[in-house]
Design a protein around this nucleic acid. Structure first.
Lengths: 153, 153
DNA sequence: CAGATTTAGTCAAGTAGGTTGACTAGATAG
DNA sequence: CTATCTAGTCAACCTACTTGACTAAATCTG
């Protein structure tokens, strides 16, 4: 019962802590990406890049990933095309659809984001006792809803 | 060096994991709050409630906490007043300012949010090995920027 | 203590990023 | 082959924010 109380106490401020940590991470990545010269992007675009990197995606798939309408996703795609991060290609197997693919600049930007993320997290991870990082990953993995990254609030 | 590689690997997907966990938590709280009858609020309002609970706050203080302009904070305050969660009182020591305070309904709502948060996190916390929860808290505490909760992306 | 400056809050207008609804061109099912 | 469904876009609108202008109260200064 004492154990139960302690769990309850630890639970108390965990929401604030978790949100604050997420916020700190996003701020860190955003700062690092800007410092690397990509000043015309905001964190929201990063969530799109996650889906587009690799084989690319259609507007509909991007919309689903971001949990917004196809119209909004199409608008964001326009913006990323205009800024040179994304290219619209004909879809190989469906003439209605078009494949959104990262340009070289887009790929460079994702590399910058990865570097910024590591830069943000490494000192923090290294300050943790041995093995804690893996444990933390495992714990977060349990709580996380796979695929749902983008906050909607 | 093998150690370094392992840290690097664990770091790799931590951003996604952390954001996904934060998202799952907010979704859980939102669902729980709605289930308890508060259907006219969105997660964004919760960040305001955090600051208003206790002694209350002025519009300016709320704006600072949410990192938005005073005008936007004032607008949100209007909305919360109209919906019966908040009351505008004369400020005890400054006739220009007005104190925003939670009504009984507002307090009930924060209790509902606390219950929803615990409901969301408890089964997850209980599945963790003994002591992991405290370690997680400590780790998040290091990463977190105090006070900055609300995501801006 | 009188006048100048700062601060708390609001009003009004503009903007960014989403929404719903209507539509076209191409894919797919009967 | 026709009918229906699906990918995407255009247009109008909505909402939560922004910037700018202002009033009233507090505070600073000589």
């Amino acid at each position: 019962m004492c154990q139960t109380l302690s769990v309850r106490d630890d639970l108390q401020d965990l929401p604030v802590l978790l949100l604050s940590a997420a916020r700190a991470l996003v701020d860190g990545i955003d700062t690092g990406v800007r410092a690397r010269g990509f000043t015309d992007l905001r964190p929201a675009h990063g969530f799109a890049f996650v889906r587009l990197s690799g084989t690319g995606a259609t507007v509909g798939e991007l919309a689903e990933h971001l949990e917004i309408t196809k119209q909004a996703a199409s608008q964001m795609a326009d913006e990323l095309v205009n800024k040179g991060y994304v290219e619209r290609r004909p879809h190989p197997s469906d003439a209605r659809a078009r494949l959104l693919v990262l340009t070289a600049k887009g790929v460079a930007c994702t590399r910058a984001a990865d570097a910024a993320a590591e830069e943000t997290l490494r000192p923090w991870a290294e300050a943790l006792p041995a093995g804690q990082l893996a444990a933390l990953r495992a714990a977060l993995l349990r709580l996380a809803t796979p695929g749902r990254i983008r906050p909607t609030w």
